[in-house]
């Protein structure tokens, strides 16, 4: 028994270490975006960091640039990008202003699709998008304009056809 004791202690230490690792695994220290995307998979949208600053009045062609695309967009094609999954997000930073702004975007669809446009997580507009596409304006709340940043999300029903985003811009409302 005495000769076995060090082995029992070694086994106990290893088991303790492994239980500690499992305890850590049960208690992750991650943010809500990571949890929703990687752990529960309740979101199709991984919000990657966006560093660029949008210039008011200057359209951004998404076929040429991935700037401001936070998540949910496929690779660029000649005319723009298709969305992927149930949600696609843009993260815009811009110089704060007191003037009212609108978010303007041009989009097409493979088939008629209903799109919810959310500004900072709140539904701002419902768009019935047709295959021939169109240009749409979404008013930005005054608080967003003063803060100099906003998250625009396009949300779709399950199994809905994707939306093709061609360009977008921040424009003065008047």
């Amino acid at each position: 028994m005495i000769r076995r004791l060090p082995w029992y202690l070694a086994a106990l230490m290893l088991a303790g270490f492994q239980l500690y690792a499992l305890y850590l695994a049960r208690n992750p220290a991650v943010d809500i975006d990571y949890r929703n995307y990687f752990m529960t998979r309740s979101s199709d949208c991984w919000p990657r960091a966006v560093q660029d600053v949008a210039v008011i009045g200057q359209p951004v062609r998404v076929s040429a640039s991935g700037a401001f695309l936070a998540c949910g967009f496929a690779r660029p094609l000649g005319w723009g990008r298709w969305t992927q999954g149930n949600e696609a997000r843009l993260r815009l930073r811009f110089t704060p202003t007191t003037e009212p702004l609108v978010f303007r975007f041009a989009a097409i669809a493979r088939a008629p699709v209903a799109v919810e446009v959310l500004v900072n997580g709140i539904i701002a507009q419902h768009v019935a998008l047709q295959p021939q596409g169109g240009v749409f304006d979404v008013a930005l709340p005054a608080g967003t304009v003063l803060g100099g940043q906003t998250v625009i999300a396009f949300r779709f029903a399950e199994e809905a056809p994707p939306m093709g985003l061609q360009w977008f811009a921040l424009e003065r409302a008047n």
Binding site: A10, L14, A15, L22, L24, P28, A29, V30, Y34
Partner: peptide
């Protein structure tokens, strides 16, 4: 028993590292 527990400890060591490095052992 020690040999068996030791044989899987590389995985658990990596899990502990990941937790302290970025917050998720898995």
């Amino acid at each position: 028993i020690t040999a068996i527990l030791f044989s899987v400890s590389g995985l658990f060591g990596f899990m502990v590292y990941l937790h302290w490095h970025m917050g998720d052992a898995f």
